[in-house]
Nucleic acid binder design. Sequence first.
DNA 1: TAACCTATCTTTTTT
DNA 2: AGATAGGTTA
Length: 724
Amino acid sequence: MSILDNLNIEQRKAAERVEGPLLILAGAGSGKTRTVTFRIAHMVLEKNISPYKILAVTFTNKAAKEMRERVEGLIGEDAKRVMVSTFHSFGVRLLRMYGNKLGYDSNFNIYDSDDQKRLVNTLMKDIGITDKSTTPARVVSAISKLKEEGITPGEYANDSRGFLESYKTVSAVYGRYNTALKKNNAMDFSDILVNTNALLDDLELLEKIQERYQYVMVDEYQDTNKIQYEIVNKIAARYKNLCVVGDEDQSIYGFRGANIKNILDFEKDYPDAFVVKLEQNYRSTENILEAANHVIKNNESSRGKNLWTAKKGGHPISVIEASDGREEAYFILRELYQLKKEGYNYKDITILYRTNAQSRAFEELFVKQGTPYKIFGGMQFYQRMEVKDVISYMNVINNPKDSLSLMRILNVPKRKIGPATINKFRDYAEENNMSLFEALGHTEEIKLGPALKIVISEFYNGMLSIIEESEYMPVSEIFTEILTTFKYKSYLEGLGDDRVEERIDNIEELRNSITELEKVEEDLRLGEYLEKISLVSATDELEESRDYVKLMTVHNSKGLEFPVVFIAGMEDEVFPSSKADYDTNQLEEERRLCYVAITRAEKTLYICHANERFVYGQTQPRSRSRFLGEIPPHLLENKNKKEKPVQKKTTEKKKSIENFNPLRDKKSAGNTLDLPYSVNERVTHKKFGMGIVRAVNEKTIEVEFTVGKKKFLTAAIDKFIQKI
DNA sequence: TAACCTATCTTTTTT
DNA sequence: AGATAGGTTA
């Protein structure tokens, strides 16, 4: 008897193979996660391998969480000792510990693409680039791709494409951009990987890590890029217990440097690799699977698999033709109501599309009709202007070297600190080799009007005071301090913007999310919080229990499955994207994307397309996607409803499910201190004066001052609070 | 410095 | 269509 008796023959072959290099070619829906989790359980329960020695790397937090929970279901508490992590979280963890070797402080901030764009933008202006052929956004994506392909600024400068103007721009910015990030004690997403990889060049450290993680597993190996490849292979080099799982037909991240060769060449890298193919699909009906197989076989890059299912037949695939994008949304909504009548719930249904912009038509209609829905990805909660403002305050408090975040908030709320003034301080900081924030403390040495001096000193001292407090204050208190000290809400109210209410709601939602998080993790520190919100991915917020229709890009749907799937916008120039028109490799990637989309469906699949579409403020004619033509007609059924659906009189607007949920990953408990404080004891605080202790919790205490109740973390509290 | 107007660009896809 | 950058004016 073995725990592996629960697996099919192929899955079992893979799970049994614990030592040595192992390649698991796992077709869509073939029980990949099941195989991997049972493999871990087998290692721990039946092979006596310490869970502490196992590292499993996934692409999203959601995948990591799911894997951890499923392993826990099999082996219990020991599962917590297995390191299940995304590449990025794993890297950040390592870099917090050892980043000083590369010249970073452990409180480094993480920049998102918005930050990257702003930084590149200022750099381009500083250098005086007049190149109109490119934009900061394009420069950012070029730089990210270069980083993840392992090309340094120096190497890029020697590249032969040097005559192109956009190339020159990228080349001029790349190195300076890196320097600026480092000065700000910040990393972008690519840096997390690049620096993790660089850390592993330290042989002593590498050996330590190799000894710690003697068994390495990588999920979605077809989507690893050069740097991730190097990280994995360095760690596994010592024991060669490397298990990679993937499917070359689902490689869809070429645009961010993913290299399909990593999986195709695994057997070259490890000639003694054991290879297992998982070809039984447990997810979809025969019709759906056959359609997917017919599409993907047009790809040269496909090795060819024999994906099969025991679920014979099934519904034909419904094709819906609409006159335009709006009608497409109507048709889908009507079909959705039909499905509801047949007994499906909203949560069984997912609408997939190629680009985020396509979600708009659905959102408008669903709001009007009061249909519960949730859009994953797109404009993230944390990227909204007002949320980002407050986060930028937190960024500076966490890491005052972060001049980029500082520049964002210097004049928000408006303090009459314009670009001219900021530049004076930037110059002063540069000349005196200090950070912009430090420079703000030297108002006397800089030529300024008296009013400005006062304003800047107020800002500077306000920040200093919160920075000091942040050592022992819970994030929620820091949040409140920021809002009150800098009167952020009155600033929002005074904007005279028609979205004031929404913005204030967002701020309140941010507060709620922090409070929710602190319920789970009482002693959450600012740095940990910022890290957490930087690394969330779109589908991490997916809640199985709530009943709403899910909308997301095909990219975001990878690894997920749904009873009913609508693929919207199946038109040439949309899917495949017009960007892939003249490039076979890109076209093949689009086809893999289509393959991913089709194979998400369990029972029912709809493919929709419109004859014209409104793009860039213009109506353009559209024809059905070539991919649709690759599906044999006998699998398709025309589900066209000729008459236009009657739009219901707008009923009372129901609020859609918010696009945002508090993070709720649990974290292991921190240290517990003996508290010398007791309820009703009197204390004094530097800033808030006299107070009375109202509650003593495990890791925090609450004190009532004249200004109101405040919470404090007990760690390091003695520096700030004194007993009387 | 801020407020207002006009011209231009945007949409691939994401940790 | 909507967002944003850049320029002009108060």
